[in-house]
Amino acid sequence: MRHRFDVRIGPVGFRVGSDWRGPVAQLETLYRDYPRPEDGIPDFTVRLFAARPWRRVVRPSVMISGDYTIPDAAPLPLRLGLLAAEMGMNLQMALAQRRYLLLHASAAERDGRAVLMTGVSGAGKSTLAALLMARGWRLMGDEFALIDPETGLVHAFPRLISLKNQAVAVMEHALPDGRFGPPMPDTPKGDIRHLVPDARAVETMDRPASPALILFPTFGHEAAERPVLPSESFVRLTQASTNYLALAERGYDALTRLVTTVPARAIDYPDAQTAVAQVETLWEQTA
């Protein structure tokens, strides 16, 4: 392919090939402090390409593919090329990650111990993780938490933090010196802007943490919390995992161990700042 970008995010190496310079230039800028894949050999390949040769220049639209793909991955306009690259990398993880139990969860660490926050899209897990980072926690990831079946430890996957809609302004306010990607209005998922994880998150991304608290946040209600039984936690986390079944008995071992050893809480919250306070209070009580 014409343009190529290689990066390692946590334990996972990627190679992104693109028919256009634009998306690769943006990736180079935003991921400039990240390492390259180990041994120069990426775990996954992502391809951004034009559906027809002339569509590289005429109404350019980016098709997303790679080692693993789904038949109906809709193309994006070239102005959203960075988003296409991120979606392509997420797709490889969701379809083919087999080394770690992949939980659709954000994660933050303090004193070697991690809080995992999972929930449906819109539950605010990216925003929560970013706000915790702004308050001095180490960000481990805003989208995927990787559980090592051998050790039970959480491995970081600190990709660019994907902020949507109101969360963009919240984080621009919370981190006036933060490094942000280009604003991308009107994407299929609303207005998006990426935030680069801080230097510490990148420098320490190879250091795993032991899971200490599992949270199931729900946005849009008065502040409340309740304990979550291991069985409920187990079922909800299998639903939040894209590879639980594919990991077979290793996945079962990892997840039963996680839910029987780590306390879990569901929290309702009216706004992000309240949620952060709730998380920190729960952390003091349980972790």
Binding site: P37, E38, D39, I41, D43, R99, L247, A248
Partner: peptide, 21 residues
Amino acid sequence: MPGAVSRILADARASAAQGRT
């Protein structure tokens, strides 16, 4: 083989074993 390849191929074998099951 390089460590990175060795891990990728171990994952591939595990994945095939699950596919077989």
